[in-house]
């Protein structure tokens, strides 16, 4: 595999995870449990859309076929999206949204920490810029895991159930294929294998503080690197993409 093809693919993976999670968080707008959280979720969504835009611009440049970030966001189909399975899971109640967010924020925190060392200057710079925001995201979701875990009996039960339900999608975060292998060898990509232990330790530590149980090891769902998703992604894309697909010649 050529490096620039691998790099294109790699950028799509990073971008898509941010874009899809940003899209999901945007669904909360106007419906949050308290005004302050409405603002926080919209703000975080905006950060993710910003990361995705920068990464898709870079992907388009690496590809060199004259496509734009919008072409990549709005004119790829279900099997061409490479986001991790976790982020496309529906919002559910606030506990589900927070659990999904915390599991992903923790991953992104350690992963982007490593990515700042990338030999690819653009990726290193983007990772540095995003890392500040990710640090804030992780603080936000961690605080809510604590509040919900160690809050009332109801909140405890809700967040524990959400974590249990989402756990089977966490293995996919750390999967590797030839794209990862090649780019890790070149010093371009961060190694998910090296992030896994840190992720696990941090999650376990916070769950303990929040009086929550770490789920038992379970059979993991995989496939995001091949664009094999859960059924939820198709609906999300249908909604997100319908306007540019209905009017392909239009500029907005």
């Amino acid at each position: 595999m050529e490096i620039h093809k691998a790099l294109f693919e790699y950028c799509l993976r990073l971008a898509d995870s941010s874009l899809i999670l940003g899209q999901r968080l945007g669904e909360w707008c106007g419906h949050g449990p308290i005004l302050e959280e409405d603002i926080a979720l919209t703000n975080i969504s905006l950060d993710f859309v910003g990361h995705a835009t920068a990464l898709l611009q870079y992907a388009a440049k690496v590809e060199g076929k004259g496509r734009t970030e919008d072409d990549l966001a709005y004119h790829r189909s279900e099997r061409e999206f490479k986001n991790v399975l976790l982020v496309e899971q529906p919002n559910g109640d606030y506990a589900k949204t927070i659990a999904r967010q915390f599991l992903f924020d923790t991953f992104q925190y350690y992963y982007y920490q490593a990515l700042q060392e990338s030999k690819d200057e653009t990726l290193a710079a983007l990772a540095q810029k995003s890392f500040k925001e990710i640090t804030y995201h992780l603080r936000h979701s961690s605080q809510w895991v604590l509040r919900l875990g160690d809050g009332t009996a109801e909140s405890h039960e809700r967040i524990q159930n959400a974590i249990n339900d989402l756990w089977m999608f966490t293995g996919d975060l750390f999967d590797m294929d030839e794209v990862d292998a090649l780019l890790i060898k070149e010093g371009i990509a961060a190694d998910p294998g090296q992030v896994k232990q840190k992720w696990n330790d941090h999650v376990a530590e916070l769950f303990k503080k929040a009086t929550l149980q770490m789920p038992a090891p379970t059979y993991m769902q995989r496939g995001s690197r091949e664009g094999k998703h859960t059924e939820h992604l198709g609906y999300l894309l249908a909604e997100m993409q319908y306007l540019p697909r209905t009017f392909p010649d239009a500029k907005w």
Partner: peptide
């Protein structure tokens, strides 16, 4: 927000 027709429009609307 979920149907904004470009990434720029989505960010502005958010």
């Amino acid at each position: 927000i979920t149907r904004a027709p470009s990434l720029r429009r989505k960010a502005i609307l958010l």
